[in-house]
Design a binder for these strands. Sequence first.
DNA 1: TTAGTATATTCCATTTCTTGAATATTGCAA
DNA 2: TTGCAATATTCAAGAAATGGAATATACTAA
Lengths: 120, 120
Amino acid sequence: MPTTTAEDPTTSLFRALMHPTRVAILDLLRDGEQCVCHIEAQLGKRQAYISQQLMVLREAGLVADQRSGANVYYRVTNRHVFAVLDAARALVGSKAFTATTATCNCPQCQPEWAELVLHS
Amino acid sequence: MPTTTAEDPTTSLFRALMHPTRVAILDLLRDGEQCVCHIEAQLGKRQAYISQQLMVLREAGLVADQRSGANVYYRVTNRHVFAVLDAARALVGSKAFTATTATCNCPQCQPEWAELVLHS
DNA sequence: TTAGTATATTCCATTTCTTGAATATTGCAA
DNA sequence: TTGCAATATTCAAGAAATGGAATATACTAA
């Protein structure tokens, strides 16, 4: 049974942001859309777990997904969410999750893709 | 047993903000410090309940209290928290809690106090 | 169609949050 | 000291979040 009572939208937003993995996912999407496997590789968590957190973000309206072949790409629906994250970090004085060099099998992680971007 | 694992400070912040009553309390403190009875009157909640939420905000470091006679006054420790609230509202498009005309027995709610402020 | 990869969903046990109720504490005044 | 007002704390039951495990779905390729 989901949350049935109409909730204060501000509270709902904070509820969605109240989880380190979800915040890390949003940070990963600062650079643009990413496929699930990429998020998985970056965060070093199991696929099902990442998918669960993506579902929460999706239901909160913070991210949207788009299928492209076998991969699903997620993006932030409103970049203003980063203003919230930045304001929060300015208050508590912590840093955003920074991407590692981890790669996955998605097209974006293949060398050919980098070539494509460079030459476009 | 409290939360023992060291938590991401950003997450802790959102956890503290994830409650409508706590957000409303912070909004009430935009105009400066307020006594507990005032918050109680404005929000129309029981005293023990307000005190519980104040405890959460206090433990999160978002507010500080100061005793003055029989009354305890709470204030925001860092006004930057309002930037977080404002950014969140800009994203979800909702409004801040606005104070009502409700009054209580605290000095600030007595007519004499208004006089004092006006003449100072 | 079959197999394999990528992703999503459901189920469940555990932990944590919520909030009412009762009670404790602090300060003031008589 | 006694009593009262203002505030804080503790306790407990129900609701919700967490995260692991198993499974389902969607797409591609052969």
